[in-house]
Write a protein that binds this DNA or RNA. Structure first.
Lengths: 350, 350
DNA sequence: CAAATATATGAAATCGGTTTCAATAATTGC
DNA sequence: GCAATTATTGAAACCGATTTCATATATTTG
């Protein structure tokens, strides 16, 4: 446990001032090239490492970006994070990550920690419970950029990054209708969240545009977990008449629902067609393969981080627009194909 | 963008010294209760927030833990991280996360970043390519605890957290043999990594103990991805005679292999029994359901972090042991049950 | 009641870079 | 050859909290 080498040690060694050492190590133009050379050699040889705290303290920035996510153990969020880490790493930023576990209380606590850690920017995907954005006002009023992605909320100072959930749901529902479904159930999550509210809207509009009735009873609000899918299946099995199509707001829930229906001797897609959302790995494994919406997680993460970097480096008012929409697509697989003849029609880009 | 409130501002406001403010905010016993009360009220009212850099600079610690992981978008690693975040958060630590993407070069770069960020401790699961632990010597020689988990390597100063891969593989292989398999293929990853080397050993020992021949040709080394599973299936289909059992070192690869075999009209488990590793969600979705080893990701994350906290807070020599073994278990499902009569035998704890 | 102890507070140094302002040395222009 | 400009370096203040050591007051003890 030897003590750290500081720029003062290097300065003493080379008989220069700490000022020059600091400048040289930051590649400041006002330092002679040869001096720079000598200094960087000495630094390497002496095993110097910069003290980021001293630096941060003085410059008032941290090169650290905060991330608050509902759950870390979700395929979608882990691919988003993978994308974020990649871009952040390349740009020399650290990522501090915390999870709200879908509770408002933890989301607030995490936001405060991030604020005290003085992150340069914040990325957030909201919890189920969140109603207002008060706990992010600290950031906004200090000019720290906050970016919402996927589970977003309107804020005039903040950029949001989403896919067009309404349109995706509209396409999915329309596809079910084209397959001959007339009595479709929609399983979705907490309607406080845009993703679920928008998908419900898309579902509803598709029905209306195709002259089908919309009924509240055909909408099941759930936690969207594996268990929730099983429960939803039970609920569906008690419906009379049975629906002939189900549009579920994520694949985890869609798959467990599908499995439970199969166990009850329902034929998929003949009796009931099923569509999920996310294009998780399980959607390609379940039998029949699940029709779903391809959701660009990694790309969303990369875009979110790039937009944040723009706001950090560029001028503050450099924000191109308040909401960025990423492309998503309907991936048609067996679970929704009632008419086999349609099987050729592969992927519909939205 | 108002300027920050500091303890000096509070001191001036209350006509006290910064020393007292600092102590009061840290709940130091030598400050009068009433004074503390006044100070914390003033702090709240003035919107004070502690400057962690100043604090870190002075105390020479960061309350930050570094994590280097091969990939963020893996079900196993995301559950590990979820566990770590939970414990870290409760203990008031931040987690800085980066991914090596299975390359040594990025692992080194990330380790250096962590070192410069002066993390209080480091958690690592090694990349495929890593051969030596030189890039962690910085930490060790400064007394910064480094903990390896899952993909570990021997280091006399560092704790490792693993499951007993050898035993798990032994049990899995023995189970295949009990089901009547006599010609078993093992698909696994880079043997530099303990997890794969140990599983190979367990595979080999089980064969030997049951008087079955071990042949190098029955071991397929792959990247363990979805594509690798499909490729491995092709390789297997060209074998003559076909094997009657396959033990794969992860579920992703096992499932894609199983799917490819089914597509080639191989009956699972009748023609070939299949066992995976990890107990990912897909193992419960694929048909037939996949026999696999349940791998306690979340728990491993929690334990890793708790051990690290012990080393950070307790005495440096408080390390209970160099290697911590977590329990894993064989979960028997249809994909390996050649004799249906055995179906009752549910889970074998290791 | 004096001495000893406990309680409460503050002055000043410190952590290690960064930055402003000033100074000196080297170079250029006319 | 001298003024003007440019290149290079340094002294000292600063960022904001923590901590050591000292001091003043309050309380207890013999």
């Amino acid at each position: 446990m030897e003590k750290d080498i500081t720029i003062y040690d290097i300065a003493r060694e080379l008989d220069l001032s700490p000022t020059t050492i600091s400048r040289a190590l930051n590649d400041h133009p006002a330092v002679n090239k040869k001096t720079k050379q000598r200094i960087s050699e000495a630094a390497a040889q002496m095993g110097y490492r910069s003290n980021l705290f001293a630096s941060n303290l003085r410059r008032q920035r941290t090169n650290t970006i905060g991330l608050i996510v509902p759950r870390l153990d979700s395929p979608f969020h882990s691919s988003v994070i993978a994308g974020m880490e990649k871009v952040a790493n390349e740009a020399g930023y650290n990522l501090i990550i915390s999870q709200s576990l879908e509770t408002l209380q933890k989301e607030i606590a995490n936001a405060n920690t991030m604020f005290n850690s003085r992150v340069d920017g914040l990325l957030v995907s909201l919890s189920f419970e969140t109603e207002t954005l008060e706990h992010f006002e600290n950031f906004v009023s200090k000019g720290i950029p906050v970016i919402f992605y996927d589970r977003v909320a309107e804020h005039k100072e903040c950029t949001s990054i989403v896919i067009d959930n309404l349109q995706a749901a509209y396409k999915a529902t329309s596809h079910l209708i084209e397959q001959g479904c007339t009595n479709i159930v929609h399983i979705t999550g907490n309607l406080k969240r845009n993703v679920y509210a928008d998908r419900l809207k898309g579902f509803k509009y598709a029905l209306i545009d195709h002259n089908l009735p919309f009924s509240e009873e055909n909408v099941i609000i759930s936690k969207m977990t594996e268990e929730a899918g099983t429960l939803a299946a039970q609920q569906i099995l008690e419906m009379d008449p049975l629906p002939d199509g189900i549009f579920v707001s994520n694949d985890t829930c869609a798959v467990s629902c599908l499995k439970a229906l199969k166990k009850a001797n329902i034929s998929i897609p003949r009796d009931i067609a099923v569509i999920g959302f996310n294009n998780d790995a399980i959607s390609r494994v379940v039998e029949p393969n699940l029709t779903t919406i391809n959701y660009p997680g990694q790309e969303m993460g990369e875009v979110a981080l790039r937009v944040l970097l723009l706001q950090l480096n560029g001028s503050r008012d450099n924000v191109p627009s308040n909401t960025i929409n990423l492309r998503s697509e309907l991936i048609i697989r067996e679970s929704s194909l009632k008419s086999k003849s349609n099987a050729k029609k592969k992927a519909v880009h939205l």
